[in-house]
Amino acid sequence: MNNDSTPMIWDFAFTFEVMPSLLQGLLVTIQLTLIGYSIALTLGLLIAVVRRVPYVGPVVHFVMEFIRTTPLIIQLVFVFFLLPASYALPVFGPVPITAFTVGVVVLGIHYAAYTAEVYRSGIEGVAKGQWEAARALSLPTTRTWGAVVLPQAIRKVIPALGNYLISMFKDTPLLFAIGVAELLTRAQRVGSESFRMMEAITLVGLLFLLVSIPSAIVIRRLEKRYAAV
């Protein structure tokens, strides 16, 4: 950090110099988001369905509530510290557990706690008559869920799920806490090496806006389209 009290002037040469590294960080950020989001979408759906199972449901609900009301960052740090650096799988042998893996999985689980609630509201929104019709046709449970309930439920909650994609993207800087080489981590590294934190952090903010504002517009369009149906 620069501590003499004269204001610094923006250094464009430095900006161009660190851009490739930052863009690579952005790429990691996007990877994290997409993988984490896939976990959140599938796990959330699973949880939403399991929540309707007697006895198991309330327990799952409590766990999810716990995850939702405690900070993501401490969950990340905790899991990162708790797990060993590698895990010995049968057949495959030891598999390294990287910060990236921990980050993406914890991110996915944390958000699954949210998407599960979104799915749940969608499932509860499916008319009772739909369940009754499925029963009247003697559809097996898997078909009732797979062909009748879930397609209707998911369609309604697509915009809400989309919002969580953006939220997740914006939360990825938290993975700095466990040293995943995403955008903020890289910026912090190059910034502190060269004493140019101003440029480094400002660029992080701008790059985030560059992605999040257009995606917010897309989601809003999506919302309008699905609201019209």
Binding site: M1, D4, P173, L174, F176, M197, F208, L209
Partner: peptide, 24 residues
Amino acid sequence: EVFRGIAALVVMFWFVFAVPDMTG
């Protein structure tokens, strides 16, 4: 749009690390 688009962590870092550089 700006403050929803950037995580609080990044904004906080900006205040703590970039603002001193800019203003002294």
